[in-house]
Design a protein around this nucleic acid. Sequence first.
DNA 1: CCGGAGATCAACCATTTGGTTGAGCCGCTG
DNA 2: CAGCGGCTCAACCAAATGGTTGATCTCCGG
Lengths: 217, 217
Amino acid sequence: MSGIRILLVDDHPVVRAGLRAMLSDFEGITVAAEAGDGAAALAQLARLRALGEPVDVVLMDLQMGAGMDGVTATQKIKAGEAGTPAPPVLILTTYDSDADILAAVEAGASGYMLKDAPPEHIRQAVLSAAAGGTALAPEVAARLMGRIRNPEPALSAREIQLLQLLATGLPNRAIARQLFISEATVKTHLVHIYGKLGVDNRTAAISVATQRRIIRP
Amino acid sequence: MSGIRILLVDDHPVVRAGLRAMLSDFEGITVAAEAGDGAAALAQLARLRALGEPVDVVLMDLQMGAGMDGVTATQKIKAGEAGTPAPPVLILTTYDSDADILAAVEAGASGYMLKDAPPEHIRQAVLSAAAGGTALAPEVAARLMGRIRNPEPALSAREIQLLQLLATGLPNRAIARQLFISEATVKTHLVHIYGKLGVDNRTAAISVATQRRIIRP
DNA sequence: CCGGAGATCAACCATTTGGTTGAGCCGCTG
DNA sequence: CAGCGGCTCAACCAAATGGTTGATCTCCGG
């Protein structure tokens, strides 16, 4: 009767130590293993499964230094092995950007908590995830609600493509040549992008798009 | 004989728990108090000083949610109370951008460590800071060395500060107001920045500066 | 089949940015 | 102390960008 068995995944030793200390204070929760990146997490899952001691919840950061990122790891975990149920994945990260939240949810995460959450909230989230439920930080929940009520205009693929070139510092003329369109069209796209992102110049657009992770830095 | 007395400052309860757990494993290091933001840190310092139990090292994150940020807190700590020596401040943060490092060093920090550092490194840094020395993470040290040796781009602190604002999408006029200088000066700085980065417009400058981690995204 | 959305282009004009030249001030260093 | 580098400002001009209007074409779904 080891209670809920957890796999901790975070690239910061400090954070892992904190979670371990925090969770071990709670009755009925055990840290079964730890990993510093997505690949190690998958290895640990396989190892524990082979030992007949599968984990009940994966508690994972989204940003993980060099290795496989949290979203990819979540996808792979949920894909899992044939015939064995995949454990619920609870995301515990620092940022609450739309793109992160949506990516995590789409990848199959059971919850999304922020690292500045008080210990009790984290405990509740773990219990909820272990029971097959979901857990969202209040800030995250509010953001998702906001999206439903007031859906943000989604950028088209072409617009994102243009944004990506924009972020490299190319002037409109060069962007036009790259995409085989006229400079006028580039400007039209830009106006649309500004409108959707709520800005009024290219640098601000890059700033917002980068922070929302619409484009990669 | 309480050994080295530390004040932990971080807005994440998880990280504080991790540092506490980690440091308490070390002989001769004691966590005297904790704080969740800069203001609370100053209050704790004053409180402990009044009790006649001043802290020997402040271990602080740079990014701290809503409240006073780490750089400002560092400045205030180093300014200190008349007649009482200010404790060394050791920065422990996630990012290693030039902008953050320079700001911290200029504010009077004794060291700059990254959160993905192994516990032993953190211990060494704390000991070094307590002894009045300095402590830089290898990545940070390498970056600073590079700035000295490098014949290439040595951006001044002012230029980096300007770049940081540039990256938020502000027009020159707004940057000028923020820095209390004229628009003409902003343009002069920009020309210098372009030259040093080898670009010829602001978006390209942001792109290069971000990729070289001169500024944070 | 029609409407809407996305992509394309043009012309026009105001504003911003980029580039240059020149100059004063301050602090550090040889 | 002279010189250098960094920070500051001004004026001017060319080029790029931002903003607007209006238009054609295609594709997709009701």
